[in-house]
């Protein structure tokens, strides 16, 4: 009896605890880091970890429900993890003058252009394929 109950209660803990699920995400990330270092791939560990997790979902080795609460929390609070990186500006005082204003303007204009071009390209293709689907009566 005992040896069947322990994994079952562990599984229940995994289902319920957000913290355990976040720990599991951390394990995937660590595995990704190790793989990146071992193979010398120029990819961040997080990306490799994500690929591993996706592969496990698709193969049926891990249920999304077992990690979903932790993942949702991490995604919702992700902006927090960017905050300390912004303070790097403290080391680049040269960007606080006219040069900084120029760069600010460049980023605003360029990013606006990138977003418009990307969104309009995708939306154009979307409408085009919707019309195509409609005329051919293919779902």
């Amino acid at each position: 009896m005992m040896h069947r109950n322990i994994p079952l209660s562990l599984l229940r803990l995994l289902r319920r605890s957000r913290l355990v699920q976040i720990g599991l995400l951390g394990l995937f990330w660590a595995a990704g880091e190790i793989l990146a270092r071992a193979t010398g791939l120029p990819l961040p560990g997080g990306i490799i970890g994500m690929a591993l997790a996706l592969a496990l979902f698709l193969a049926g080795g891990l249920k999304v429900a077992n990690i979903k609460r932790g993942a949702n929390w991490m995604l919702a609070e992700m902006l927090l993890f960017f905050v300390p990186a912004v303070l790097a500006l403290l080391d680049h005082r040269e960007l606080l003058g006219l040069l900084g204003l120029k760069i600010f303007a460049l980023i605003v204009v360029s990013t606006t252009a990138v977003m418009c071009v990307t969104a309009l390209t995708v939306d154009f293709c979307y409408r085009w394929s919707e019309r195509d689907d409609g005329s051919n009566a293919v779902a």
């Binding site: 951390g26 995937f28 990704g32 970890g49 996706l54 991490m74 995604l75």
Partner: peptide, 22 residues
């Protein structure tokens, strides 16, 4: 003292597997 917060971007990237899978 705060680098651990930035490091959490790693596990946060892994978290994208869930919405992408769905």
């Amino acid at each position: 003292g705060t680098h651990w917060l930035v490091a959490l971007l790693g596990p946060a990237t892994v978290a994208f597997a869930v919405p992408i899978y769905e």
